[in-house]
Design a protein around this nucleic acid. Structure first.
Length: 613
DNA sequence: GCCGTTTTCGGCCCGACTGTTTTCAGTCG
């Protein structure tokens, strides 16, 4: 396995997984090996999930912040980043065939099987090891190895071929919409008592692999029959007693699980995850003498918990397990508050829940205005024009119950003559002033204000793409990066801070610039940007656009800790996109945001005080 | 090797599935 100084998180994680595999094979005799392997795997998971580069943390002397990295691991990483290698790891890895490590990527093959396959089949070249394995499998060579058979040979073939196929992930808004159609269909059946999304979809992770759904019903057979009869499917993959899977024409797999209403709570809890949340929850319960599973809670003999708390619960004497109809009673029985699914990532929510200090998360209903809207009023803008009129977007805002809006068409192309730019912006201001006047008086019931803004490019050097005197036409504006996404952290940080210089540059739009599945965002010293925003009253946007969802949840969490104010906006380019606000809200919730952290939850009067215009 | 609301020592999540197994090992989520 290659090591070098500039290792990314993914590479470090891969290295640690390799070390875990090596220990699994070499340390058979030592009783502690099992846990050492787990420790390395946990550290790898933790590093892979971290949005901050571990190398940067190391430079700042903050390696200890990463969960799962203790004194030994920190010393090894220190050696790795300093010298480009870890002698201890090299010694361990060099004594094993290099080819086995590539096989670890194949589902169903772990350390032991990878080692055995490579040894028995004499695969020596590390590069292309899985292709070689595939060819040998197709020749029927694997079934001859002790511990393998025809079945496992076939599985290995499927798995290797599948590696190159099954990588597709779906964006949250898309998966949610598909799932909701199916949930709606299921709920129409009178035998369905409850139907819920599970897994990453329920936790509102920004992209999801497959869609899992659970149903509470006393008649699983009937529900499965009904589910597999869903019209908009391309095939039924599997249909059993309690579970079934269908495939949709777009390639999305929908897995269904049916359970009786009495035991539905533990099931919902278990399959909502995350894995890390569940592991931490079970470890906590274990210390109190309780064992948790998808079936309920079982008491260990040494348990000191008062079982009186459980009196109201269903006790299944045969299975010796307490069963739960809903999640709330499950968590409550552990002495905890119910934890919103968005928080279940083992990021401190368990501790907060025990202390009764869970945040009161922001909700869609709290939002009082949309601050990023593209109408079709301006032509020849630097990027996409909106599809609909200001009027139609204002009508939609009324329907959504908003009290104010900010129109933020892209700035006019900068190479136009300055007088021309001034002209169109003057016309827009006059139009909005006029419209507001008539609407406020006519409505009678509620004041609704339309603010005049723009979304202005921050150019590579940090200058904004607008003539200085044009700012006078605007109430306040969004500034955003739309180009030059590479570039050093230092340069990009300076660029952002300069872009926010003007007092009316109030909001930093889609701050990282990422497009999920397309490109990474810009590299920025977020700590510095957060401090700047806090001191200078700038707001960071959580953009609800389906493949942006930007700020990402983890940065939301960090920003809030510093005390930075955020806004949630849709970046709508058409009227029917304004309902996408819920996805921005879900990002905020995953970042532990409360109503008070989000500026556009303020009513009109408080908002104008906050924006100071 | 990590970690602390019983612990700085002594623990370490839980169950399903699969295969080659006559009682368990490996892998996964």
């Amino acid at each position: 396995m290659r090591m070098h100084k500039e290792m990314t998180n993914a590479e470090v994680a891969r290295l640690l997984r390799g070390v875990a595999a090596a220990y699994e094979i070499k340390g058979k005799d030592s009783p502690n090996t099992r846990f050492r392997v787990i420790a390395y795997e946990r550290a790898a998971d933790s590093i892979e999930r971290s949005t901050v580069e571990v190398k940067d943390l190391w430079e700042d002397g903050k390696l200890g912040q990463v969960p799962g990295i203790g004194t030994s691991m920190a010393e090894y990483l220190d050696e790795l980043f300093k010298t480009g290698k870890v002698r201890h790891f090299e010694k361990l890895l060099d004594s094993l065939p290099e080819a086995m490590f590539e096989l670890l990527d194949i589902p169903g093959i772990g350390a032991k099987r990878a080692y055995k396959l490579v040894k028995e089949l004499g695969i020596t070249k590390a590069h292309g090891a899985s292709e070689k394995l595939l060819r040998l499998a197709e020749k029927g060579r694997i079934r001859t190895i002790e511990g393998f058979g025809e079945q496992s040979e076939k599985e290995i073939i499927d798995a290797i071929q599948g590696v190159y196929r099954k990588t597709k992930r779906f964006l949250l808004p898309f998966a949610t919409e598909v799932a909701e159609n199916i949930l709606e269909y299921l709920r129409k059946n009178p035998r369905v008592k409850r139907a819920d999304p599970l897994g990453s979809l329920r936790r509102c992770v920004s992209s999801v692999g497959d869609v899992d759904i659970s149903v509470a019903s006393d008649d699983p057979e009937e529900v499965i029959k009904y589910f597999t009869a869903y019209k908009n499917k391309s095939e039924v993959i599997e249909s059993g007693e309690h579970t079934a899977s269908i495939l949709l024409p777009n390639g999305m797999q929908i897995d269904l699980m049916v359970q009786p209403p009495d035991t539905y709570g533990a099931l919902l809890q278990h399959f909502t995850g995350s894995k890390e949340h569940n592991v931490a929850l079970r470890e906590y319960a274990l210390k109190k003498g309780m064992s948790l599973s998808e079936y309920g809670i079982r008491f260990l003999q040494k348990s000191k918990v008062q079982k009186s708390k459980f009196k109201s619960q269903n006790y299944n004497a045969k299975l010796k397990i307490y069963q739960f109809a809903d999640e709330k009673s499950f968590y409550n029985s552990l002495g905890m508050e119910w934890i919103p699914p968005e928080l279940r990532e083992n990021q401190g929510e368990i501790e907060a829940s025990i202390e009764g200090e869970l945040p009161s998360l922001v909700e869609v209903e709290d939002i009082k205005g949309d601050l990023h809207l593209h109408s079709n009023f301006l032509k020849d803008t630097s990027h996409d024009e909106g599809a609909n009129s200001i009027e139609s977007m204002v009508e939609e805002a009324d329907r959504l119950g908003y009290e104010y809006l900010l129109f933020t068409e892209h700035n006019p192309k900068i190479d136009e003559q300055e007088e021309k730019i001034m002209d169109v912006l003057r016309r827009k201001k006059e139009y909005i002033d006029k419209t507001n006047y008539s609407r406020e008086n006519r409505s009678g019931k509620r004041v609704r204000k339309v603010f005049n803004g723009l979304e202005i490019d921050i150019r590579p050097d940090g200058e904004v793409a607008l003539p200085d005197r044009a700012w006078d036409f605007l109430d306040f504006a969004v500034v955003s990066v739309h180009s030059s996404f590479r570039g050093s952290r230092d340069k990009q940080t300076k660029r952002i801070l300069r872009g926010l210089e003007h007092p009316k540059a109030k909001i930093l739009g889609h701050p990282t610039g990422r497009r999920i599945g397309e490109r990474e965002g810009i590299e920025v010293d977020w700590g510095e940007v957060f401090e700047f925003c806090k001191t200078n009253d700038k707001w960071l946007e959580i953009n609800s656009w389906w493949d942006r969802l930007d700020l990402p949840d983890i940065l939301v969490c960090q920003a809030i800790k510093v005390g930075v104010k955020l806004v949630i906006s849709t970046d709508s380019h058409a009227t029917d996109q304004m309902v996408l606000m819920r996805y921005g809200v879900s990002v905020a919730r995953r970042g532990w945001a409360e109503k008070g952290d989000i500026v556009n939850t303020l009513g009109y009067n408080d908002f104008t005080k906050e924006v100071r215009i």
